[in-house]
Design a protein around this nucleic acid. Sequence first.
RNA 1: UGGGGCGUCGUCAAGCGGUAAGACACAGGACUUUGGUUCCUGCAUUCGGAGGUUCGAAUCCUCCCGCCCCAG
Length: 350
Amino acid sequence: MKDFRKSVLIGISGGVDSAVAAAILQERGYHVEGLYLRNGFPVGGEEAAATVADRLGFPFHVLDITESFRTDIVDYFAGEYLAGRTPNPCIVCNKRIKFRYLRKEARARGLGCIATGHYARVKERNGSFQLLKGIDTTKDQSYFLFQLGQEELAQLILPNGDRTKGEIRKLAQDLSLPPRAESQEICFIPDDNYRTFLEDYPVALPSPGNIIDREGTIVGKHRGTHTVTIGQRKGLNIASSRPYYVIEINTGKDEVIVGRDEDQFSHGLRAHHCSWISGDFPSHGTFQARVCIRYRHRGVDAEITPLPRGRVRVDFTTPQKAVASGQAAVFFRDDLLLGGGWIEGGLHDA
RNA sequence: UGGGGCGUCGUCAAGCGGUAAGACACAGGACUUUGGUUCCUGCAUUCGGAGGUUCGAAUCCUCCCGCCCCAG
């Protein structure tokens, strides 16, 4: 008889992090079962995941979620680029795929908890759950989990959150887990090239057009607005005394606007579809927080002003580069993740 | 075919007799559970062409080719 509260379904990818996380759970006396989500793309580590389960000796399940992965993730991903935004598929996948199916399968299998190999921590406090940054701040992945809520957190265990990447690697060695050394990019794009991926995807692509500077002078050509993203420098093919960066994408005119390094700064941003991990929207006025504009962004202190309909205005204390619409703005107070939203655009005028 | 100027890496550009800086671009790598950024490495045996002077020239001379400007 397995103890419901001591049983866990862990999402395993085939990588070291989830493998070690599973081992840690076993060590803690959990009944562990593993779930691999097959997304329909041949990039995954299904075989490696099966090997890990076999090595560690726990039941291994595979769930084919190709259908929803395509509509919820890949379509979203392509749509964002076509709209001139910069998607973050991992965040969306965590909320709509990974944790959703993990919970669903756990329930179906009578397992009380779910787990992943993310570097973040869950803490219970007065009956509510908090998400904290991982101890290893250089590896912290709480950014990717900002959309989770109390429902997920209530049954979530993140064994790697209070360990460093080094410790995890060491554990992997000690357990002689198959080394699958790789830092995968987007899990469904094999060659790391999202541009060619989009070109192969069944969507109507934007037309080639001009690259112009802030004065409107044509300085180059692009192959379609979907091939560039805010803050991009490489691949523009513009020879100049100093590098150019993409500062704006005009899909209506098929135009890409570039500027110099100093033209990249915004003093704030607006975000929409904000979610607050505690469940409560902070509707009572402005508050201070540290905001991360992208994964591995060190964060900047800012003033957050809630706006109607789940929107928010953020004013940085220090201007930030390459605020990209489509990316997430995630708010922290020290290690505590408060919530986050999707960036509509940067604020440029005072 | 009167005068003047210029031709050095894909682009911009140092060098002015002592044996080809740098920047941008590009390529590869590192970093990385998103894109971008960043970092590292590589990138003209050769200076429009052909001769000449010199121990030695991209640097001086001659001619040729090609641009640009001012006069015609």
